[in-house]
Computed example of a mutant assay.
Amino acid sequence: MWVIVLFDLPTETKKDRKAYSVFRNKLQKDGFTMFQFSTYIRHCMSVENANVHIKRVKKFLPEKGHVGILCITDKQFGMMELFYGKSPEFKDTGAQQLELF
């Protein structure tokens, strides 16, 4: 499973910028990686594990702004096509598959 957090937070005032930084830093401490600006992703081994991280994100939601949380499967994530301009981009997402023998 992949948990994707998409957000659009205000940054007009110093207080807003601080809330933005706190939210982003908490996402990173919970293992999320920036995929694009205001889009963070995290790989989870199961639905139960994904739900744990979703609950954590909900606990530190900022007072203002819009936040969306999306869960997709590995297969759905793997079907994503990434482009840099018109050329396909093959980017390592950072997640590694663990093999047990």
Rank of each mutant, 00 (worst) to 15 (best):
D30H: 15
A50I: 07
M80T: 06
A50L: 05
G65V: 08
M34R: 14
V52A: 02
M79P: 00
L27R: 00
F60Q: 04
F77V: 03
K64Y: 14
G65A: 04
H53D: 06
R24L: 04
V47E: 13
M79K: 14
G65S: 06
H43I: 14
F37D: 07
K55T: 07
Y40P: 00
K59N: 15
Y40K: 02
R42W: 03
K86F: 09
A50C: 04
I69T: 06
S87K: 10
I41S: 00
F60K: 12
S87T: 14
F23Y: 04
Y40I: 01
F83Y: 15
V67R: 01
T73K: 12
G31P: 00
K58C: 12
I72Q: 11
M34Y: 03
K58Y: 05
I69M: 12
F37V: 06
Y40M: 02
S46N: 05
E48M: 10
V52D: 14
F60G: 07
M34C: 05
G31A: 06
R56Q: 11
G68L: 09
S46K: 05
F83W: 04
M79E: 11
D30W: 09
I72Y: 07
H66Q: 08
F23I: 02
A50H: 01
F77Y: 12
V57K: 00
P62D: 14
R56D: 07
V67Y: 08
F37A: 06
N51G: 03
V47Y: 10
N49H: 08
R42Y: 02
A50R: 02
G78I: 04
F77E: 01
R42E: 03
G68Y: 11
G85H: 04
K64F: 09
K75W: 05
V52M: 12
R24W: 03
P62H: 09
G68Q: 13
K55S: 15
G31N: 03
Q28E: 15
K26L: 11
F32E: 00
F83I: 04
R24D: 02
R42M: 06
F35E: 07
F23E: 00
G31D: 02
L27V: 01
P62V: 00
F77T: 03
M45S: 13
F77H: 11
E81T: 09
S38W: 00
V52S: 10
V47K: 14
L82T: 13
S46F: 06
R24F: 03
L70P: 01
E48H: 11
K86E: 12
H53R: 05
M34L: 13
F35K: 06
Y84I: 03
L70A: 08
T73P: 07
C71M: 15
F83D: 09
R42G: 03
K58L: 11
F60L: 07
S87R: 10
V47I: 14
I69S: 03
S87D: 14
M34P: 04
V52K: 14
